[in-house]
Design a protein around this nucleic acid. Structure first.
Lengths: 248, 248
DNA sequence: TTATGTTTTGAATCAGGTTCAAAATCCGAC
DNA sequence: GTCGGATTTTGAACCTGATTCAAAACATAA
C-alpha cells in the first residue's frame, strides 16, 4: 500500500513549506527575529507541528543554512563542469563563485557563521549536523579533482601534501577575507578602497606561493579583472549588466 | 572634592569584579550557560546593579571578549619589541602567537566568533563596540611597521599596496584556518594529520607568494618547526616543556 | 536634622522557546 | 458503514532566564 509513502511525501512537502516560509521571514527581518510560533502560524499549523520537523529553533536554522548550502554547492558543480580554463583558473573560479555567492546571499553568510558558533551548533540535532557535513562532499571532490589535474599536468608540485590539504590554503584565504569583511567598519578603518580587488589579488598571491603554474602577476589589475569577468560569463552565466550589479 | 572621583573608582572596580567573576564562570561552564542573575549573586549584588554596567547580556560578553583582546594585543607588542629576526620572521611570529593564543584560550576564540555574529553584535552598546574597535589600533601599527621595514630593507615589493592591505593576506590565512578548524570534524574528514604544520606551511606559502625575502621552503618541516620553536622561545618566553604542552 | 538626589535592590514582568494532555484524524477490521 | 485503537495535530500552559522599575536604602547638602 502506498499509504506510508504518501504520508512521507506529505511530510517532506510540509517541511519544505516551513523552510520556504522561514526563509522569507528571515530574509525580511533577519534570522534573529524569527519566532517559532509566528512561523507556524504563518503556515497555518500549530507550534507543536513545527517541532515534528525541527528539534529546536537552532535545528531549524541549520536546516535553512543547509538548504542554501545546496545552492552553494552548485558553484562547485559549475566549476567542475567548466572546461574552458586551466586548473589554476578553475581554482580561481571557485574564489569568484564564493565571493559572488556571499554577496548575493548576505543573510546566508551570517547565518552560516551563526550556526557554526558552538553555542548554536550544540543545540542542533545529530541528523541535521550529519546533513550539513555531507553537503561538503561534492565540494571536496571538485576541489581535489582540480588540484589533481594540476599535478598531473605538471602545473603544480604537491610536495607531499594531499590535494585537500593543498586546497585548504586558498580556502582559508576565502574564509578569512569573508570573516574580516564581516567585521563592521574594519576595511574602512584600514583605508581599503576595493576589498574585492584585494581579495582576488590575495588569492593570486597564494596560488603563486604554491608555485601553481602559470604564475600570475597579482599587481596586474587589468588581467585579474578580465579573468574575473570571463569566469562570471563562462562559468556562472552572469552577463554584462548582472556582472556589474554583482560587482558594485 | 574627591567624592565624584572616588565613586568613579569604586564603580570601575566593581566592573572589574563582575568581569573577573564572569570570566571564571565562563571558563568553567562555557559562555552560553552564563546567567545574569547567577553572576550578580555570585558577586553579592542585585541583578539590577549588573545592568548599570552592561546594557545587556551580549554587552557583557563583548566586554569579556575585549578584556581578553588586550592580552591578545600583547602578542603584537611582544613581536613589535622583538629584535631577533628578519621582518619576514616577525610576520611569521605573529602567526605563531595567534595560533598559540587561540589554543591557550579556546573559549576566547569561540566567544569572539559569537559576539561578532551580527545577531549578537547588534545587541551590544555603541560604547562597547567602540572599545572593541580601538583595541585593534596597536595591532595595525605593529603589522604596518613590520611590512614597512621589509619594504625599506628591500625584502618586499609592495607593488602599490599599503602596508595594511598587504598584511590582510597573511591575516586572512590566520583567520581562515581558525574558522576552518572550528568546523567540528572538518579536518578529520579531510584526513588532515597535523593542522598545526599545515597552518604554518600555508603562512609560509603566502609570504612566498608575496615574494617576501628571504623565501622559505614550505615543504621543509624541520626548518619551519625550528623557526616556530625559536619564536616561542625568544618572543613569547615559552620554554621547552611549555612549548611541548602548547604544541600538543 | 531634614530635604533632595542618587544608587541599589530583587520581586515582578515579559519574551519566546518548548512541552504535553486532550482533541482530531486516520485506517484497517468487522 | 462504523467501531476502536493508533497516529497526528493542536495550542494553551509551562519554564527558563533576561530585563525592568517602584520602593527602599543610602549619600549629600543646606
Amino acid at each position: 500500500m502506498g499509504t506510508r509513502e504518501r504520508k512521507q511525501k506529505e511530510f517532506s512537502l510540509r517541511e519544505a513549506l516551513f523552510l520556504e516560509a522561514a526563509e522569507a521571514m528571515v530574509s525580511e527581518e533577519g534570522f534573529l527575529h524569527l519566532q517559532m510560533a509566528r512561523l507556524a502560524e504563518a503556515c497555518d499549523y500549530a507550534t507543536g507541528t513545527l517541532y515534528q520537523h525541527f528539534s529546536s529553533k537552532e535545528d531549524l536554522l541549520l536546516a535553512l543554512a543547509n538548504r542554501r548550502m545546496e545552492a552553494f554547492v552548485d558553484i562547485f558543480r559549475k566549476v567542475g563542469a567548466w572546461q574552458g580554463g586551466t586548473p589554476r583558473e578553475r581554482m580561481f573560479a571557485i574564489a569568484v563563485g564564493d565571493l559572488d555567492f556571499s554577496r548575493h546571499h548576505p543573510e546566508h553568510a551570517k547565518l552560516t557563521q551563526y550556526v557554526h558558533a558552538e553555542a548554536v551548533w550544540e543545540n542542533t540535532s545529530p541528523e541535521r549536523r550529519e546533513q550539513a557535513m555531507c553537503c561538503t562532499g561534492p565540494v571536496g571532490e571538485v576541489v581535489a579533482g582540480i588540484v589533481q589535474e594540476a599535478i598531473d599536468r605538471g602545473d603544480l608540485d604537491a610536495q607531499g601534501l594531499s590535494p585537500l590539504e593543498l586546497a585548504c590554503g586558498p580556502w582559508s584565504v576565502c574564509e578569512g577575507m569573508r570573516a574580516l569583511s564581516h567585521v563592521q567598519g574594519l576595511f574602512e578603518s584600514l583605508n581599503i578602497r576595493s576589498p574585492e580587488r584585494l581579495f582576488f589579488r590575495q588569492v593570486q598571491v597564494h596560488l603563486n606561493g604554491l608555485n601553481w603554474a602559470p604564475l600570475a602577476d597579482p599587481a596586474d589589475h587589468a588581467a585579474t579583472d578580465a579573468l574575473v569577468a570571463r569566469v562570471r560569463r563562462e562559468v556562472f552565466d552572469v552577463s554584462g549588466p548582472d556582472a556589474r550589479e554583482v560587482r558594485s
